[in-house]
C-alpha cells in the first residue's frame, strides 16, 4: 500500500476541519489542534485501482499568535491550501503558505481549495483572483463542506497528482 502525507493549511476559520470531518477516519480530538497545533486524520482512497492511505495533517490555522511549524509540513507529498471565499485576506495568507510549502516540501503537490462555495454570492475572492491563481499554475477547486461539494473530488485529484 502507498502511504502519503497531506497537509491542510490555511488561515484560521477557513473550514479546514469541517471540510474533512465527515470524510475521514479520526481518532484524535480537536483539542490537539489548539495544543500542539496539529491533528492527524486518515483517509483511504482508491485511485486507478490502487488504494492509497492518506494521512491528513490538519494544521492549526495560521494567525498573528500562532505560526505554523515548518516541521509539520516537511515530508508531505500533497498540500491543500484552503481559502475562505468570503474573506479575501485568506488568499494572502494562502499565498504565503504556498511559499512556505515550496521551501519546506518542494516536491509537494499543491491544490488550492476555496471553501464555502455554497455562499458564493457573498464571496470576496473574485473570479479574477481565481483566474490569476490558475494563471500562476495552481489548481483551484471550489468546495463546500456544508453542501458536500467537490470535497471527494479534491481528495481524488490530489492523490492523482501525488502519484504522478
Amino acid at each position: 500500500m502507498i502511504k502519503k502525507k497531506i497537509v491542510m493549511l490555511g488561515s484560521f476559520a477557513v473550514g479546514k476541519t469541517s471540510l474533512v470531518q465527515r470524510y475521514v477516519n479520526s481518532i484524535f480530538s480537536e483539542k490537539y489542534l489548539t495544543t500542539i497545533g496539529v491533528k492527524i486524520d486518515q483517509k483511504i482512497i482508491k485511485v486507478s485501482n490502487a488504494e492509497v492511505n492518506l494521512l491528513l495533517w490538519d494544521i492549526h490555522g495560521e494567525d498573528d499568535y500562532q505560526k505554523i511549524k515548518p516541521t509539520y509540513i516537511m515530508g508531505s507529498s500533497g498540500c491543500f491550501i484552503i481559502l475562505d471565499g468570503t474573506r479575501k485576506a485568506t488568499l494572502d495568507v494562502g499565498l504565503k503558505l504556498i511559499e512556505t510549502v515550496k521551501q519546506t516540501a518542494p516536491n509537494s503537490s499543491i491544490i488550492i481549495l476555496i471553501n464555502k462555495s455554497d455562499l458564493k454570492e457573498e464571496w470576496d475572492i473574485s473570479e479574477d483572483d481565481i483566474k490569476n491563481l490558475k494563471y500562476k499554475g495552481y489548481e483551484v477547486i471550489e468546495t463546500s463542506a456544508k453542501a458536500n461539494t467537490e470535497v471527494e473530488y479534491a481528495f481524488k485529484r490530489i492523490t492523482q497528482l501525488m502519484l504522478n
Binding site: K5, G37, Q42, K69, Y72
Partner: peptide, 16 residues
C-alpha cells in the same frame, strides 16, 4: 489500532 495515525501523531508530538 490506527497505527498510521498514531505514528503520525507521535511524529508530530516529537516535532512539537
Amino acid at each position: 489500532k490506527n497505527s498510521d495515525m498514531v505514528s503520525s501523531m507521535l511524529s508530530a508530538i516529537k516535532d512539537f
